[in-house]
Amino acid sequence: MSLKTVLSRASDLEHVEESELRKPPLDVVAFSVAVTRKLRNWKKTTLADFARVSLSTVERVERGEAVSDEALDRIAQAFGQEPGHYTAPRVTIPREQAEAEVSETYGKLWPLEVARFTTQAQVREAARCCAHLMHAPNLPEAYEADVESLREYLDLVSFCLAEQSDGIPMSDTARRPLYDHTLAAVKELERRSVTVLIGYLDAPQPKIPDWRVCIVSLTSRLTDPGAPKRKMMFIDKRVVAIENMNMGLDD
């Protein structure tokens, strides 16, 4: 079901006063659950297992059929949301405002192809980017030191290759240990059940048409089991703008 279809069907619901509290329409819940699940590359059975509900319950939710509030709360928690995310009554808003809010949330997302971070070629490509950002929104603080270690090695490789481009030669023998140390930092995170994905985003900026950013995604396999098979993710293009580069993606 497309977003346009959801908004159209929602507009056909019976009229209610804008100040009236109302639960989210089933069509909207169905769309949100299905999109969130697919973006995580989860099978329906994976969501059912994490939410501790039956497969048939997930299927009914994604068809827009009614299920218990308890089941919807469990699904919300499986996605890292608070109970009530799909069930709590809220003030209704006009369709035009809903469209504007959805556009604000999703209209600035860019698709990014990603792959497991495993090769020296990926390290070299990351080093050639204008900047790199670590995307670890739900990673526990216990991994902070390992993430920072990976960040520092990427910075070091980028610096060394930049020096080489400025006329200071650097032999393959000197570069390889840097690549190896970078990949060792990745392997340590993987050993601790963190999936590390990497992608490169061309994000032209005013006066810098070749602005390119390396995105490193880090997610725990305990909470995101679909990550190892993920081939695509979405990045807010405002975050990779030059003026916002100090924001990072892990806030």
Results as ranks from 00 to 15, higher is better:
Ser103His: 13
Thr195Phe: 13
Gly107Val: 15
Asp172Ser: 07
Ala126Glu: 00
Cys129Pro: 06
Thr92Arg: 14
Met134Arg: 04
Val194Ser: 03
Leu178Gln: 00
Ser165Trp: 14
Lys207Cys: 10
Ala131Lys: 06
Ala185Ile: 01
Ser158Pro: 11
Ala78Trp: 04
Cys130Tyr: 08
Ala76Glu: 01
Pro83Ile: 07
Val186Ser: 01
Ala115His: 02
Ala76Thr: 03
Leu109Arg: 15
Glu152Gln: 10
Leu72Gln: 02
Lys207Gly: 10
Tyr86Gly: 00
Arg191Thr: 11
Gln77Arg: 09
Glu163Gly: 13
Gln205Phe: 05
Gly84Glu: 07
Glu144Gly: 05
Ser158Thr: 11
Asp73Leu: 15
Cys130Asn: 09
Arg176Ile: 04
Glu144Asn: 10
Met170Tyr: 15
Val196Phe: 11
Val147Ala: 03
His132Lys: 04
Ser193Cys: 15
Ile198Glu: 00
Arg192Gly: 08
Thr87Leu: 07
Val147Arg: 00
Glu141Asn: 07
Val102Lys: 01
Pro89Val: 13
Ile168Ala: 03
Ala76Ser: 09
Ile208Pro: 07
Glu113Asp: 01
Pro140Tyr: 09
Tyr153Ile: 01
Leu139Phe: 11
Arg151Gly: 03
Ser165Asn: 08
Ser158Ile: 11
Pro206Ala: 15
Thr195Cys: 13
Phe159Thr: 02
Asn138Glu: 12
Ile75Met: 09
Ala126Tyr: 03
Lys187Gly: 08
Thr118Gly: 04
Pro94Ile: 12
Leu201Ile: 08
Ala203Lys: 04
Thr173Ala: 08
Arg175Ile: 10
Gly107Arg: 09
Pro177Gln: 06
Ser193Gly: 14
Ala126Phe: 06
Ile75Asp: 00
Ala127Pro: 00
Phe159Arg: 03
His85Asp: 14
Asp166Gly: 11
His135Asp: 02
Cys130Thr: 06
Val186Asp: 02
Pro140Lys: 05
Arg151Phe: 15
Val157Pro: 00
Tyr200Leu: 09
